[in-house]
Computed example of a mutant assay.
Amino acid sequence: MAERGSTGDQLHGPRITPTSGEGATAELMRARRGGRLSDLDRLLLHSPPVAEGWNALMGALRSGTTLPADLRELVILRVAVLNDAVFEWTAHEPIGRRSGLTDVQLQLLRLPDPSRGPGWTPVQAAVLAFTDASTRDVAVPDAVFTAVREHLDDRQVVELVTTVAGYAMVSRFLVALEVPPPDGEVAG
C-alpha cells in the first residue's frame, strides 16, 4: 500500500475543497462520529442526500450488525490494502487492534493472499478469502462462499457482503479524491 495513494506522492489536500461542515446533515454525521467531522465527511457534505445515506449505511455497518468486531475490521483493513486506501487503513488500524487483531495479523493483511497464512481462525480465513474474491473479482466462487457459510448465519452473510461492498465504496471515494490519511482513528 502506497503512503499517499496510488496517484503519486500527494503532499496536498483532497482534489476538491472540503465543505465547512454546516447544516442538518453535518449534525447527523457529527452525532455518529462523537462530535467531530473527518475530511471524508466534509467532502461528502457537498451532496447532503448522498452524505445522509452514506452516514446511515456506514453507521449501520459499524454499530448495527451482528458480525463480530474482529471480522468487520478484518474486512475493512483488507479492503483498504486491496484498494490502496491509506486513509481507511489509518482510520481503522487502531479499531482493529482493539477488536483483537494482532500485530502479526495486521502485517499478514498486507500480503497478496493472507488467508493462506498462519495466525487466522477458520472463520477469519474464510472471511479474508471472501473479501479478496469479492473485492478483486466481484464474483465469489462457490467454494469461498461455502466456507463462509460454515461459520456465519444468513444475517451475518448479508452483513459481511454489505461490509465488503460498503468499504469498497469508501475506499474508492477516498482514493479518487486523494483524501489524505487522518492523524489516527476516525470515530464512528
Rank of each mutant, 00 (worst) to 15 (best):
residue 79 V to G: 10
residue 142 D to W: 09
residue 54 W to Q: 04
residue 23 G to D: 06
residue 79 V to F: 13
residue 125 A to C: 09
residue 28 L to Y: 02
residue 63 S to Q: 14
residue 49 P to I: 07
residue 181 P to K: 07
residue 135 T to F: 08
residue 118 P to M: 13
residue 107 Q to P: 02
residue 50 V to I: 09
residue 144 V to T: 14
residue 117 G to Q: 10
residue 55 N to V: 00
residue 177 L to D: 08
residue 147 A to E: 05
residue 49 P to Y: 04
residue 114 P to H: 07
residue 95 I to D: 12
residue 2 A to H: 10
residue 172 R to Y: 04
residue 96 G to F: 15
residue 18 P to C: 02
residue 24 A to P: 13
residue 170 V to G: 01
residue 140 V to A: 14
residue 164 V to M: 02
residue 53 G to Q: 11
residue 155 R to N: 08
residue 74 L to Q: 12
residue 115 S to E: 15
residue 183 D to T: 14
residue 76 I to E: 14
residue 33 R to S: 08
residue 106 L to S: 12
residue 126 A to Y: 12
residue 91 A to H: 01
residue 79 V to P: 10
residue 150 E to N: 15
residue 112 P to N: 02
residue 2 A to G: 09
residue 81 V to S: 00
residue 140 V to Y: 05
residue 187 A to P: 11
residue 110 R to V: 11
residue 147 A to F: 00
residue 164 V to F: 01
residue 88 E to Q: 08
residue 6 S to P: 14
residue 27 E to N: 06
residue 66 T to M: 15
residue 18 P to M: 05
residue 2 A to Q: 09
residue 3 E to I: 15
residue 132 D to H: 02
residue 175 V to P: 09
residue 80 A to Y: 00
residue 40 L to I: 04
residue 83 N to R: 13
residue 32 R to H: 10
residue 170 V to A: 03
residue 124 Q to E: 14
residue 160 L to P: 13
residue 56 A to Q: 09
residue 124 Q to P: 10
residue 37 L to M: 08
residue 131 T to K: 12
residue 26 A to F: 12
residue 8 G to F: 11
residue 31 A to N: 00
residue 149 R to W: 11
residue 144 V to Y: 01
residue 185 E to T: 04
residue 48 P to W: 01
residue 182 P to E: 03
residue 125 A to V: 11
residue 87 F to S: 11
residue 27 E to W: 03
residue 89 W to F: 09
residue 44 L to V: 02
residue 31 A to K: 00
residue 52 E to L: 08
residue 120 W to E: 14
residue 167 Y to S: 00
residue 111 L to P: 02
residue 184 G to N: 04
residue 2 A to C: 07
residue 39 D to W: 05
residue 60 A to N: 15
residue 105 Q to W: 04
residue 45 L to Y: 00
residue 17 T to M: 03
residue 40 L to T: 03
residue 41 D to H: 09
